[in-house]
Design a protein around this nucleic acid. Structure first.
Lengths: 345, 345
DNA sequence: AATTTTTACGCAAACGTTTGAGTTGGTGTT
DNA sequence: AACACCAACTCAAACGTTTGCGTAAAAATT
């Protein structure tokens, strides 16, 4: 419902002009005299005229809105990312439509379809952990839909991508654990297929290998649903606790997994870091006041969102098809706190 | 951009029917024979026809989308609320447009205006702490915009509202503190003008009075920006710490204020609960693993969002103007943890 | 058999814009 | 004086639907 909706038609009638003259005047066309333009503009201003976005969309074939797909909005990392997206989009006159995949492939497909149907001008997506096949996205891209990946990207699709230095972050965290005297470092991560998983795993492995510490496959646990499913995570933790030798540290690979693991360890009365140290990727603002305070790999979430949106809008607004794609890698930051306190204190 | 966009016109051409026949067939009109309907429906199904939402919006004057205004999406409470809204809206074929006021009156006005411009069919709003004057909303309502308030509501506008038992929650929390042996209970809350502030303050005061404990005005601190502004909050905490007698407990009135206060106390090396106990309204999933674990008043955030959306959609879909409004009050739940551990242990 | 009624469909306007293709009246050129 | 030319507009179609009204043909009524 559009209120006190004054239309271009009303302006035309009042000013004894044609509809098209008014339209062109408002768009500052060269065909219209300065005098008329001024007249129209002032009238429009005074009567608070706003073009009907739906009429414009229908006519111009774009909607000035961009679609977002994240696994869950109820997640510090993603809500900060969305914050950045909203901010950038808004400043360029776009609005965003947010959908949640809850890490489900089916939901992801459904959401994307819904967004397309809503005639979005572009898509920002972090693919679900469950998703192994990105054909549905490739098809859309081939049909001309601008897509920018962030966080969980696909190697099979060539487009702009914004990620963080996942390998570096994991490497730094693992090295830190080694430096602190931990030897048996486990790694709980998301689904095998995810780009983030691969990269963080690589950082973890690299650090171990570099230090001459063997990689124990039993120490690596995958959670297909990225920690959304608590049972899955609990099983991983249980298994780790029964592995010989028992790990003395865990590196968790996502915000959700980190917080859930911490909760789980508490519930099981496993002390951190005495029984087991914990370092995780997390963007929680509460890291400082957790018990113990949490050593975390922090991602510039707002900036990820802002940058991804900036790049998407640049594709959308580009006159000619974009074929050169950029891969932005933002740095992570390791905040050392007590959950990884030195073993030989 | 709408892809493989097959239109009603395409169907008409293929089936040698008129556009209007197809349209009516798809809408299951009585004017069309069963045979034709079936033909059209099947063709549409097979070719994956989806009506163009913008054309429909333009024609029908509504957009099948609802606007949301919250102070910040990067906030556990609100992201859970939005989760509920998204869920309900989506299930009824609506989508949501989320905006953030960052507790600013100006931004709130701007956002609402932007949403109206986007031709939303209804508005879900938790008013900013800064907002004292709701004329801009009243005007819209009078013009026929369905509005549902949640969380921070306005008494000056008559419409559906979804809140929690703020008074009860604060009363219960305060009583719990008294029961635990705390005598000098401070209260840090949002802006004076907010409905939530008034109600929670009432619960706090009622509990004190009922137990014959005097209300010390110096113990009550208002934060105009609801904790978004850290300086403001820090000043409040500092002042409290210098008040004689020094409070031995704090009741914080919002998610943001609670977490920020906790962080602040940590930074100042003030021990919880030994130096000062802390009980706060908060929806963080990390309450259990905080240091100390946080006694919190938890709100059914998802349900607030879901319910508010359900009510908004009922207004939107109502044939006749709605004049009877409902005030839904959901219960809060007090989770007792260590931040309010009994004083006489 | 002539009529009314019903059924099933088509026509065309409308929603508010945008835009290419006319159409004026006036100025400048030869 | 005849022409071209330009500035400043207007016309009308188009975007994809929806919907009231009109109208054939078929069916029912007399």
């Amino acid at each position: 419902m559009n209120f006190d909706a004054i239309t271009i038609r009303d302006i035309a009638r009042e000013l004894h002009l044609s509809v098209s003259t008014v339209s062109k005047a408002l768009r500052d066309s060269y065909e219209i005299s300065e005098k008329t333009k001024k007249l129209v503009m002032e009238f429009a201003q005074k009567h608070n005229y706003r073009p009907n976005p739906m009429a414009q969309s229908l006519k111009k074939g774009h909607s000035k809105s961009i679609g977002i797909v994240v696994s869950s909005i109820d997640n510090q990392f993603f809500s900060q990312v969305i914050n950045g997206m909203e901010s950038e989009a808004y400043s360029q006159g776009y609005n965003v439509i947010i959908t949640q995949s809850h890490e489900s492939y089916d939901l992801e497909v459904q959401n994307v379809s819904h967004l397309i149907h809503r005639a979005i001008d572009g898509l920002l997506i972090s693919i679900a952990t469950e998703t192994a096949d990105v054909e549905h996205l490739r098809k859309l891209q081939q049909q001309g839909l601008p897509i920018v990946f962030f966080d969980r990207v696909s190697n099979e699709i060539d487009t702009h991508k914004v990620i963080v230095d996942n390998r570096g972050g994991a490497y730094q965290a693992t090295t830190h654990l080694l430096d602190s005297g931990y030897k048996n470092i486990a790694h709980i991560t998301s689904s095998v297929t995810s780009s983030v998983t691969t990269q963080r795993l690589a950082g973890y492995v690299d650090a171990l290998v570099e230090r001459g510490v063997g990689v124990n496959e039993e120490y690596i646990k995958y959670c297909l649903h990225g920690g959304l499913n608590l049972d899955e995570l609990e099983q991983a933790v249980n298994e780790l606790m029964q592995t010989e030798p028992r790990p003395d540290a865990i590196l968790t690979a996502s915000d959700r997994i980190t917080t859930s693991t911490m909760t789980l360890l508490h519930k099981k009365n496993i002390r951190i870091p005495q029984d087991i140290a914990l370092v995780g990727f997390s963007n929680t603002v509460l890291a400082d006041v957790l018990n113990p305070s949490l050593t975390s790999v922090h991602q510039p979430a707002f900036e990820i969102g802002r940058k991804a949106t900036e790049m998407l809008l640049s594709i959308i607004n580009s006159k000619r098809p974009v074929t050169e794609f950029e891969n932005v890698i933002l740095p992570t930051e390791l905040f050392i706190r007590n959950s990884s306190a030195s073993k030989h204190k």
